[in-house]
Design a protein around this nucleic acid. Sequence first.
RNA 1: CGGGGCGUAGCGCAGCCUGGUUAGCGCGCCUGCCUUGGGAGCAGGAGGCCGCAGGUUCGAAUCCUGCCGCCCCGACCA
Length: 572
Amino acid sequence: MRFSQLLIPTLKETPSEAEVISHQLLLRAGFIRKLSSGIYSYLPLGLAAIRKVEQIVRQEMVRAGAQELLLPMVQPGDLWQESGRWEKYGPELLRFTDRHGRESCLGPTHEEVITDLVRMNVHSYRDLPLNLFQIQTKFRDEIRPRFGLMRGREFIMKDGYSFDATEESADKTYMAMHQAYHRIFTRCGLAFRAVEADTGTIGGSFSHEFMVLADTGEDTIVICKNCEYAANMEKAGYREPAKPDTVPALKELTKVETPGKRKVEAVTEFLGISAKELIKTMIFMADEKPVAVLLRGDHEVQSVKLANALGVNDDNLRLADDKEVFDATGVPSGYLGPIGLKIPVLADLEITRMYNFAIGANEKNHHFTNANLGRDFEVKTITDLRMVTEEDNCPKCGGALSLTKGIEVGHIFKLGTSYSKALKATFLDNQGEERPFIMGCYGIGVSRTVAAAIEQNHDKDGIIFPLPITPFQVIILNLSPKDEEISAAASKLYDYLRSEGIEVLLDDRDERPGSKFKDADLIGIPYRVMVGKSFSNEGMLEIRTRADGKTTTLTLDETGPELVKIIKEALA
RNA sequence: CGGGGCGUAGCGCAGCCUGGUUAGCGCGCCUGCCUUGGGAGCAGGAGGCCGCAGGUUCGAAUCCUGCCGCCCCGACCA
């Protein structure tokens, strides 16, 4: 394509609305434009990058045995009523009524539709397993869209759904998808980790998130520095340290006055102890009923772990406010402790390794010191309820853990039979018995992947596209469009590369060289060829790689084949 | 939804506090000259319902009220 004919509205300045780097660069490089909050138009370059990712996704899905179809975006409310999600899904589901008064919605995901399709058309184990996917624009009325393509309301997603007859087969499918995802993100040239994710209240057996490692990621993930272990915070475990051989002597429980000392920091400072020698008592409202949670002073609650321990939905769990705390315990917050508490109490595992610790006395302005579990109070439910820290060790190998940020670009999920049961989607097995399909679902945020790639690959001058997902592989800069000799050389190279199947952009604009260099860097095309002065003087062209700025000087006849060679090798 | 911030030319901003002629600046855009290896220079030019609607005032971009939009922080997710 010729630059002069493409819509590439680059910007010299950064629009103030863009906070993260991918958003800024996508805007500046003329890849996207915002229409409305969380809704973007994809301009030619942006679309080209998206298509590249789509193509990789498509190839790997098909390679893994999935087949592509395309499902409707507008979906009848009835189906969602049937699955029970019309009520459950919440305001993220954009609902509307059509002219006949039928309730409808824009598809944020397609479990209902695909399950309906399969239940109507697949009836025998002989037709299984079945793995279907689509690449489509999704709409989720996000509470807060942000970061450009990273979290839009409208976004392009690959969603796949599998149907198996047996657990073994379903697990095999899951593994195949796990591998396919691995290949996809590797091919996209991204640094990523597959992390274990929480399966939530749906109760599926396993789930992995594919996270691109980037500082601007919205999620914190835990990775082992030593082995392959990786998990998100909701799921991350740790290796329990060995119990000390000898239990220290239990000291006498003592009530001390701690006037006005409510926060962990204030209490520990006042008592002259560390936060590791104090147990804090937090009150949560679970389904609007109060529960107390015991944690070591310096630890933080992991709400999903807590929700799972309580058997409630994460959405229905929140920290109690001061009034609720007082109503539930009769004690103002800040002086709570497990001794004599009338509401259900859960404790984090860590407290079983603590002795002679401080706790609230359930009395205003008082705490206990030298409290001990078992002697002074009992807790029925003791389990892992906290955020993992970098002080913890890997649950798999015992190595050091590190917390890093990631962008979730893919999520695979073994669903089991929750949807097939709800929608009565069944088949006959080889014994003639009716069984619900065992399902899995597999998502990839395609537009988000492009944003994530940019987060991971850029410098002060702009984007540095990985070759597999770049909108163009080569950009030729005609530095003197008015010079016939130079223009002819640029065109010749352009034609040659195109005939070799190379995706090439020819900057034929009547602009000064400086602007062309800047735009080429900004757009991030991996290889740049300069045709200018050195061609008219010495008959030489320069190839420059965007990533490292290295240049090679070659003749016109050498340049084309050299580029073809480099690109073919890099993509092999 | 809770908290914070912002709406002035395509983009980035000043002006607003302390109302007063024709609303500025940089970039971009158009024309001409000139220039051509890292966003040149000169000259000329186009482009604004100052987010919208009310109100106060002789007079509102500026003060007041309401609404709308956008961005950031939290809970959600590909």
